[in-house]
Amino acid sequence: MVVARGGGLGFGVFFQAWAAAGGSDAATIAQVVRSTELAENLGYGVAWFTEQHAHLLGGFWGRVGAPHLLIAHLAGRTSRIGLGTAVRLVADLDAARLAEEAVTLEHLAGPGRVHLGIGAGMAAGGDPAERERRRSRTRTLSEELDALLRGRAPGRADELAVAMSMPELADRVYVATTDERLLAQAARLRQGYLVGMFGGNRHASMVRDFRRLGGSGPVRAVRLVHVDTDDAAAIRRVAPVARRLWTQFVPPSPGWRAVKEQLGLAPPLGVILEQFGWIVGGPSTVASAVVEYASACGLNGLDVAFHLPGIPDEVADRAMADFATAVIPRIRQLMHASLEPITT
């Protein structure tokens, strides 16, 4: 087994469970299960699963609407790899039910394996009032969730069927947000920070903001990666997929939608890869790019997305294996003296 760690940087895998229009929900979920089992055998530390409920990105979308159920299933099929939500869309949930859910998953999976990423999600149609409502509700729920998991909710224990005081699980709660108020709250509660897949050029400043606000919890980020035998082979594989995705893709923010409109449907491949934040190349190229990015951001963990519509599952799985066997050792060599070992 390859232990997927490099220097002080922990590595995980990230599954959007995206499939193109006409793709099978059942086949997509089955692929996620198989690839998670492979990720465990390769030594990755954690697998994260998104929650998606709408066709927000255009011609492809995520097929997992209930990541906690997927985690419950995988708890019985794996034994070591961490299992995380990235993220539970909590603005319309109840804190006690979410805590009960997380504690039950921890009992099923075993101590230390469940990681709970939470976020507000996107407002339908980009409505500013709905966006603020979701952010406000997420701040309230995050505070309540922390109190419940740390046993600091007087009077609630007698009301609840599940004994949910589990401080060690509270230490594995992460927020995914650009809302400075939620970041400040996460810093105060000693929660971790999940930095999203897109906007890689902004990630370093986002992490600096979290640390400036007093955040001491672990920071993890997601990046799209494709690794192949060499740079030319990686580009050949990714180029048609990237161009097709770009034509189908609806950016999640108004500013990015304006950028895409300005760039048009056929910008140079390098521009498309930059817009997606996609790291593509042979092992040495990918390792160097990861080290540069992770060092700039001061990451504790990097969670890699390999599977995309247009890349056959077996090719994505091979890239995941190559990253573990050929890229991470190079990252370890480059980073061993630059990051402190982590224990989270």
Rank of each mutant, 00 (worst) to 15 (best):
A326G: 11
N201G: 02
L70P: 06
L116E: 00
R150Q: 11
Q248M: 14
D317S: 11
P251A: 11
A187P: 06
P312D: 14
L334A: 14
G23W: 03
V315Q: 14
A186P: 10
E159A: 13
V280I: 15
A266N: 15
G192F: 08
G310M: 03
A27N: 01
I331F: 08
D171Y: 06
G281I: 01
P67V: 02
A96P: 02
R113F: 03
P283E: 03
F323K: 09
C297E: 13
R212G: 08
G76M: 08
G200Q: 15
G43N: 05
V173I: 15
A95W: 00
D231N: 15
A239G: 03
Y293H: 14
L302K: 03
E106F: 04
A102R: 10
L57N: 08
P341H: 12
V2K: 10
G264S: 13
E40W: 14
H226C: 05
W61K: 07
V271H: 02
H203E: 08
I235N: 00
L189C: 13
R139Y: 01
E132D: 08
G270V: 06
R150W: 07
L56W: 13
F276N: 02
R88G: 05
L224N: 11
L245V: 09
A21S: 12
L308V: 11
D171F: 05
R134V: 07
A153K: 06
P341Q: 03
L169V: 05
P251T: 09
A204C: 07
G22C: 08
H336L: 05
S216L: 06
V238C: 04
L302N: 01
V219Q: 13
G43Y: 04
E180M: 02
M335N: 04
L69A: 15
A321K: 09
I71R: 06
A75L: 07
E144Y: 11
P218V: 10
V227I: 11
A232W: 00
Y293M: 11
A242W: 08
I235V: 15
Q248H: 09
R236P: 00
W246G: 03
G255W: 03
A86N: 05
A99H: 12
S79N: 07
A39E: 05
V286Q: 10
A337P: 00
A287H: 01
T178F: 08
Y174S: 05
F323G: 09
K260H: 03
Y44P: 07
L160K: 06
S165N: 11
T36H: 06
C297H: 13
V291W: 12
A72V: 10
A187V: 10
A123T: 07
V315R: 11
A316I: 07
R244A: 12
A4P: 12
N201M: 03
V327E: 00
T343P: 00
T343H: 14
D25K: 13
V227D: 11
